[in-house]
Amino acid sequence: MKTDLNTKQWLSCVIAAIALSSPVYAADVEWRVPTSVPGGSPFYENFLQRFADNAEMLTAGRVDIRPFGAGVIVPALQVYDAVKEGTVEAGHSTPSYLVNQNPINAIFAGFPGGMGSQSYINWIYEGGGQAALQEIRASEGLHSLIVGIGSTEIFAHSNVPINGPDDLDGLKYRTSGPWAEVVREYYNAVPTVVPPGDIYTLLQRKGVDAIEWATPSSNYPEGFHEASRYIIVPGVHQPTFLWEVVVRQDTWDQVPDDLKQLIESAAKLTTYEGLSNFYHNDLIAMEDYRAGRNEVISLDDAFVEELSENGRAWIAARAAAESEAGNPAMEEILEDYQAYQARWNTQKDYLITD
């Protein structure tokens, strides 16, 4: 017994010595990535954390992406600036927050009358959309990695019923991006933008009449349905949306070529997995909403078409104004986007979507 004990002690010492003498390899790529949403929220988990996990898996640990919730490193609405300024290596946010700075972002943010997720994801990856976005970001000194395309959003969680255009007149409405401009210009609403983490309190305290944030399943854990009576669908204001991780171009240039391909693959995998996750969980969320205390209002087809027409008119006017100012890129990309949308709509009768 004594010999066995000595042997075990010796083996333990050898194993410990090997462990201590073995080199600890750092990842080849280490990025701190703040996001515009709170840590642990659906967009954080479904897009950013999923991307971090996929990148680690596909690169066998050579890429270490460290997500940070909104406000931990930089404020929620300043992620793009933080990357440009070199405060962090990369950041996670949405073009929706850049529309007021440059309206070309509206094409990628999602807008009334735009494509839904099924056609949009194909335009992005097969029809040239991703290349167009990467060219825009390159002009800003950034590299874009698309890590999220979403299902259709909820039009509003509201303290007042919304059935038609008259109900939008004077409505105090938390929103952002192209829809904020459309609802102000065409319907005399009063849009306001607050970071995602502040939306619930704003709604609960009736600082606004209504809010829109995201998909049914993304909204559910935020508790918006508990702070308001009405749920308005469909989300014609934002048929789909896009989130990206942006990296400083000089940071991206330092990444080994083999890892660049794997990181791009991790981003694309994340986008498809994330969209599938939304579809499934949105179904569950809508079932729960309809079984609960809320009144779900479905907008009629005529109003949905009116909103779509006004959204298309708004973005066409912005693109034309950009061209007149000597910036033709928005109009060129929008023409390509709408041509793909028209092709899709012309041929979609072969699809079964239920």
Score class of each variant (00 low, 15 high):
I199G: 02
I149T: 12
L171Q: 07
N159L: 09
V160E: 07
V194W: 10
I146S: 06
P195W: 09
I149V: 15
N159C: 08
D198N: 15
N159R: 15
S151H: 08
R248S: 10
N188H: 14
F224C: 12
A214E: 04
G207K: 15
Y200I: 06
G177W: 00
N188P: 09
Y186K: 13
T152A: 12
V247A: 02
K172C: 08
V160W: 00
I232T: 04
V183F: 03
S228P: 05
L242D: 04
W179L: 00
S228K: 03
F241S: 02
V246E: 11
L171N: 06
N159S: 09
A214W: 04
V246S: 11
V183M: 01
G164Q: 14
D167E: 13
D166M: 11
N163W: 12
W179D: 00
T152M: 15
D169H: 14
E226F: 01
E181N: 06
N163L: 09
G207V: 05
A189M: 08
P196S: 09
Y186L: 07
E222A: 07
T175V: 04
L203R: 10
R248F: 05
T201L: 15
I162H: 01
D209I: 00
I211A: 07
T215E: 02
P234N: 05
E153A: 11
G170I: 01
P178C: 06
I146E: 04
A156V: 11
G150H: 13
Y173E: 00
V246F: 11
A210H: 07
V236S: 13
S158D: 08
W213M: 10
D209F: 03
P196F: 03
A210F: 10
I232K: 04
V160L: 10
I199C: 08
R248Q: 11
P195M: 09
D169N: 13
P234E: 03
V233G: 04
T201S: 14
L168Q: 07
I199V: 12
K172Y: 09
W179I: 03
L168C: 08
H237P: 06
L145I: 07
E185W: 08
V190P: 01
P216L: 09
Y230N: 07
E226C: 02
D167L: 12
V246T: 14
G164E: 15
R248N: 07
V190E: 12
R229E: 13
A210S: 13
P195C: 13
V183R: 02
D198E: 14
A214C: 00
P161A: 00
F224G: 11
P161H: 06
E212R: 11
E153G: 01
Y220R: 15
G164H: 10
P239C: 05
H237C: 04
S151C: 09
N219Q: 11
A210W: 08
I154L: 11
R248T: 04
Y186P: 05
T240F: 01
V194A: 08
P221L: 07
V182T: 03
T201P: 00
T192G: 11
E244I: 12
Y220K: 14
P165E: 15
V246N: 10
L242R: 04
T240D: 00
V194R: 08
E185K: 10
A180L: 04
G235D: 00
S144T: 14
Q238H: 05
P221V: 10
I231P: 03
E140I: 04
V208A: 13
T152D: 07
E153S: 10
G141E: 07
W213C: 02
G150K: 13
V233Q: 12
